[in-house]
């Protein structure tokens, strides 16, 4: 085990230099993994490609973490994205063992969605599989699938907006081998983001929502002939004209919902960077 940056300070320095140069040149972008030969996302410019496994092998980050780099920097507030990308490197000591970090992040998210309390039995089984994986005797695909299927079945039996269903959804989303998964952490973060809007908005009741959807559907159906002839139709503008009060209320709740989602997403860099800085904590 050579750890982060394969134990070589020069690897860390070269990686940091590459990111800093792209940031200074304006060729560091944030979003879906990309490399166009001139610039791209942090993972893209680091590998001059976009292969997560390549990043993990070259820089000594676990695969599950490598898969989080581009999503995490995209979640960051725009004015913090560059700093976040650089901190991803600077926060980690050369040779640090990051192997336990993915499970710690999963654990934080499961706790945030109360899986440890509301889905305690499944949560315990899941952690048992993680422990087996870390101990060098990885569970089989069947082991993971058996637990995942049982949790999925339990999830289906819960009401759609219940706390227990959220906890079970978190468990079923996390129920994959972390050592060989690059998609688990971003997917689990997505579940956590969506959960921020699970509870009804007190300023926009279900009846108003149904009215708004009905109105939007009515406008959509009415304007289908125009779209069929290739004309563009501004549905929000028509909605505002026909029912200004309802449209304003609808757009208000959308704005609040988006703000809650964005605020939660923007907490991710701090959460991840704290674990990277103390990988053995």
């Amino acid at each position: 085990m050579t750890g982060a940056f394969t134990g070589d300070p020069a690897v860390k320095a070269e990686l940091l230099d590459r990111l800093t140069t792209h940031a200074a040149n304006g060729t560091l972008r944030f979003g879906v993994t990309a490399w166009d030969g001139q610039g791209g996302t942090p993972l893209g410019v680091s590998t001059q490609g976009g292969d997560v496994a390549d990043y993990a092998a070259r820089f000594g980050y676990p695969l599950a973490l490598a898969g989080l780099l581009d999503p995490m920097t995209a979640y960051a507030a725009p004015d913090r994205a560059v700093d976040t990308a650089l901190a991803w490197v600077t926060a980690v000591d050369v040779g640090a063992d990051l192997s336990a970090v993915p499970e710690r992040i999963v654990h934080d998210l499961l706790e945030a969605m109360e899986a440890d309390r509301l889905a305690a039995a499944y949560h315990a089984e899941l952690r048992q599989l993680y422990r087996a994986e870390m101990s060098g005797t990885p569970p089989t695909r069947r082991d993971w699938a058996d637990l995942r299927n049982r949790i999925a079945q339990a999830t289906e039996e819960e009401p759609p907006t219940s706390d227990v269903r959220t906890a079970l959804t978190a468990c079923v989303t996390a129920c994959w081998p972390l050592a060989t998964s690059s998609s688990v952490l971003p997917t689990l973060f997505s579940v956590w983001f969506r959960d921020v809007n699970r509870r009804p908005d007190p300023e926009f009741c279900d009846a108003s929502r149904e009215l708004a959807y009905a109105k939007l559907d009515e406008i959509y159906q009415e304007t289908q002939p125009l779209r069929d002839t290739g004309q563009s139709v501004d549905i929000p503008a028509l909605f505002r004209t026909r029912d200004p009060t309802l449209a304003a209320a609808f757009e208000g709740q959308l704005a609040r919902s988006n703000a809650r989602y964005r605020a939660r997403a923007q907490t991710v860099p701090d959460l991840v960077l704290a674990h990277l800085a103390s990988p053995g904590a």
């Binding site: 997560v52 496994a53 898969g67 695909r141 994959w176 060989t180 690059s182 998609s183 688990v184 971003p186």
Partner: peptide, 15 residues
């Protein structure tokens, strides 16, 4: 397609 890519990477390991 882009959303599917990391999932297929993981399936390559799973299978």
């Amino acid at each position: 397609c882009r959303a599917l890519a990391p999932i297929l990477d993981d399936l390559a390991n799973d299978f």
